[in-house]
Nucleic acid binder design. Structure first.
Length: 481
RNA sequence: GGCGGUAUCGUCUAGGGGACUAGGACACAGCCCUCUCAAGGCUGGAACACGGGUUCGAAUCCCGUUACCGCUACCA
């Protein structure tokens, strides 16, 4: 079997959309799984809408996800000469013909038909000219478009995702392949490029299904092998409509900035329209490649469920090697003004310990930073709610906290087991439950009613800071009483 | 309008004629664990769009209807 060659061919008219990212992923997985090449082609022939900025955004998004491409990026705009030549080849062979009808005329006919509620089909017979007429118009340098002569019969193909799709050719009008200004039209450019790039499988969004018969016709007329096709479904928003800005974040970059991990995004996207066929959900890239199969590809549009993506991110946050997580998250700590990247790197054991505590409690990397504030700085801000709930009896609480402070201060090691033993003993002596100590202590240390386990907080806040915070709480309570 | 595509819990899905009392996951509710919060474990509610066939037997095959989506350009 020939080495498979697939491609992802976005047009640079916006950012990398999650739907595009998913098609890219399926193509990439296919290439990895079947030992093929994954190529990238930027379809920048629409000069007005294409921007370098969005080309960069596509690269960035793909790189962030780790969907790297083989070979150099192909820019469609650089190949217009060939597109033009291919269109003319079709003209020479008779597969296409010149259409001298002014664009405005066909547009008018189309509009009129539409107004009458009829469907318009370009009429080949009125456009076809005698050789003499053609020669005459050519001599006068009248502009013409080149139209493909759609043959009789029907066009069908076995789709990788759908079973078999067939179109009667009578429903396909003679479409333009070269505009009267000499520029190629999308279908012409795509086919010409895919042939030149040796693409063996075209996997793309199912919004291209109706382009496919036209393209197959072009392959045949050009004497090229018709590749395989696979049309993957669209991604919809919660309302069932095609995902768009109205639904919130749709660009891959948005999710990156929201605090999602690329591996979670990939995992989530893979499961949107593909299933391994087993009850397994959380997978890393190597496992995704190993399990990927064409059979699991879906035909039905899927709704983008942010909640599940968040859950998925939480799963990957828990799975990612701690050093890698530290690397991803350290810059965020710096941005938040908590600590510099260099500072964090200088005390990896401490930093990793803090991250271990928080990774299971967070779903987004940003949340880790928020939760981590407790472990930095000297002062604690007390939540009014926390005070009301855990520090009701100020005098009693001050007393308990003072005793807690003293017991902890007398410890000669600063490790959780010893702290717990000491404080449980204190509770027993006072005839109160452990919670009666831990909860007020939590407020003293964090200002909040919720936090990681209290002994872990003690450990990572550090002896000096912890004792200082408890003393400050006692002072606060005494002045309050 | 024409053409094409799709149809299983709210959502992502398993399911390729009998193993279906329709399984898993997210979300939701409850319980357990427990110093709080997460995580984890357990339990619960929740679906085969509708109507006809084919068959001893249909979520699964066929036809129709409906709904939704896409395309219908000298855009890509």
């Amino acid at each position: 079997m020939k080495r498979p060659r697939v491609r992802f061919a976005p047009s640079p008219t916006g950012f990398l959309h999650v739907g595009g990212a998913r098609t890219a992923l399926f193509n990439w997985l296919y290439a990895k799984k079947f030992d093929g090449d994954f190529l990238l082609r930027i379809e920048d022939t629409d000069r007005a809408r294409s921007t370098d900025e969005s080309t960069r955004a596509i690269f960035d998004g793909l790189e962030w996800l780790g969907l790297t491409w083989d070979e150099e990026v192909v820019y469609q705009g650089a190949n217009v000469e060939r597109h033009y030549a291919d269109a003319h080849r079709l003209l020479e062979s008779g597969a296409a013909y010149r259409d001298f009808t002014p664009a405005a005329d066909t547009e008018r006919l189309r509009n009129e038909a539409e107004a009458r509620g009829e469907s318009y089909r370009f009429d080949r017979d009125t456009a076809l000219l005698s050789d003499a007429e053609t020669a005459e118009k050519l001599a006068r340098h009248e502009p013409y478009a080149i139209r493909f002569r759609v043959p009789e019969g029907h066009t069908e193909w076995p789709d990788l995702v759908h079973e078999r799709i067939a179109f009667p050719n009578k429903d396909i009008e003679d479409f333009i392949i070269l505009r009267s200004d000499g520029t190629p039209v999308y279908n012409m450019a795509v086919v010409s490029d895919d042939i030149a790039m040796g693409i063996t499988l075209v996997m793309r969004g199912d919004d291209h299904i109706s382009n496919t018969p036209k393209q197959i016709l072009l392959y045949r007329a050009l004497g090229a092998d018709v590749p395989q096709f696979g049309h993957v479904p669209m991604i919809h928003g919660a309302d069932g409509k095609k995902l768009s800005k109205r639904h919130g974040a749709t660009a891959v970059g948005d999710y990156q900035h929201l605090g999602f991990l690329p591996q979670a995004m990939l995992n989530f996207l893979a499961l949107l329209g593909w299933s391994p066929g087993e009850d397994i959900e959380v997978m890393q890239l190597p496992e995704l490649i190993e399990r990927f199969n064409v059979h699991g590809l879906h035909a039905k549009a899927a709704i983008f469920d942010t909640k599940k993506l968040e859950w998925m991110n939480g799963q990957h946050l828990a799975l990612i090697p701690i050093a890698e997580l530290a690397h991803v998250v350290a810059p965020l700590f710096e941005q938040a003004g908590l600590a510099t990247v260099a500072d964090l790197a200088s005390r990896p054991a401490w930093f990793h310990g803090v991250l271990e505590l928080l990774r299971v409690r967070a779903r987004l990397t940003d949340e880790i930073v928020t939760l981590a504030t407790t472990f930095f700085g000297d002062s604690v801000e007390y939540d009014a709610e926390a005070i009301g709930k855990q520090w009701r009896d100020a005098a009693f609480t001050a007393d308990v906290l003072q005793a807690t402070h003293d017991r902890l201060a007398s410890l000669d090691t600063w490790e959780p087991a010893a702290m717990e033993e000491a404080l449980r003993k204190l509770a027993e002596e006072k005839g109160i439950s452990g919670g009666k100590i831990f909860q007020p202590l939590r407020v003293a240390l964090t200002g909040k009613t919720v936090s990681p386990g209290i002994f872990d907080v003690l450990l990572y806040v550090g002896r000096a800071h912890a004792l200082a915070r408890i003393a400050a709480a006692v002072a606060f309570l005494k002045q309050d009483a």
